[in-house]
């Protein structure tokens, strides 16, 4: 009985052998994924994602509003209050706090003293937000610095959306207040707390939602300071 020729056996074996590692065309289709190399079309070392041609003008959403996009009013002066698109609220400050923690605290530190971990690793220390020059700077100044960069600090315009930059600028004001508050600003309850601080809690585990703290604890445990 000869129900399968030698050639078919060999083919069958080859199919079985390659089945696990085989990636037919459907796996990698003829289209670019984000950031895929565009070497075959644009030349060696080129990305498939292209830079905008110089002089490109957006056909919609042009950023003409100087106050909102650049932090300056029509006279070219830095804004002293949030632009009309932004509403100061607890939510905005919470958002600013979160985004400050992600993008700013590595250098500026959690309290804005300019002592973040990257500074401890050797980066140029930024000015303390409570320095007189910065206390007097209008809120538009912080927006402008985030947008254009300042000194050793690169621009964050491509990384932090406009509304988040305003939220962070508002939160910087919170930090400044927190470091320069006078007793008359406190409610009786808070004043009482400040005068009679509760005994520090000794916690066994990590508290929920304190990522930064966790990392610090972890590092101490590993002794890699």
């Amino acid at each position: 009985m000869k129900w399968m020729s030698m050639k078919n056996w060999v083919l069958c074996g080859l199919v079985l052998a390659t089945m696990t590692g085989c990636h037919p065309d459907l796996w990698n289709q003829d289209r670019y994924e984000p950031l895929e190399s565009g070497a075959s079309v644009f030349g060696e070392g080129e990305s498939s994602a292209r830079m905008l041609v110089e002089g490109t003008v957006p056909y919609q959403g042009a950023k003409l509003d100087d106050a909102y996009y650049r932090g300056r009013n029509t006279n070219g002066e830095l804004l002293t209050a949030l632009p009309e698109q932004m509403t100061l609220s607890r939510e905005l400050l919470k958002r600013g706090q979160e985004r400050y923690g992600i993008y700013c605290s590595p250098c500026h530190g959690d309290q804005g003293a300019g002592d973040g971990m990257i500074v401890q690793r050797g980066f140029v220390p930024p000015t303390n937000f409570s320095a007189p020059r910065l206390l007097e700077s209008p809120v538009g100044y912080y927006f402008e610095v985030m947008t254009n960069g300042f000194g050793r600090m690169y621009s964050y315009a491509s990384r932090i959306p406009v509304e988040d930059r305003w939220a962070i600028a508002a939160y910087v004001r919170v930090l400044q207040l927190s470091q320069n508050a006078t007793p008359d600003l406190l409610t009786d309850e808070l004043l009482n707390k400040a005068k009679n601080p509760p005994a520090p809690k000794v916690e066994a585990g990590h508290g929920a939602g304190h990522e930064a703290d966790n990392h610090e604890n972890k590092e101490e445990a590993k002794g890699e300071h």
Partner: peptide, 26 residues
Amino acid sequence: SANGIDCRYCHTTVETSSFAGIPPTE
């Protein structure tokens, strides 16, 4: 772990984009 940098500092689009993203050289 050692420097405490949040994921989103480099992977800026993870919350908003279908593509998680690799940070640019900048």
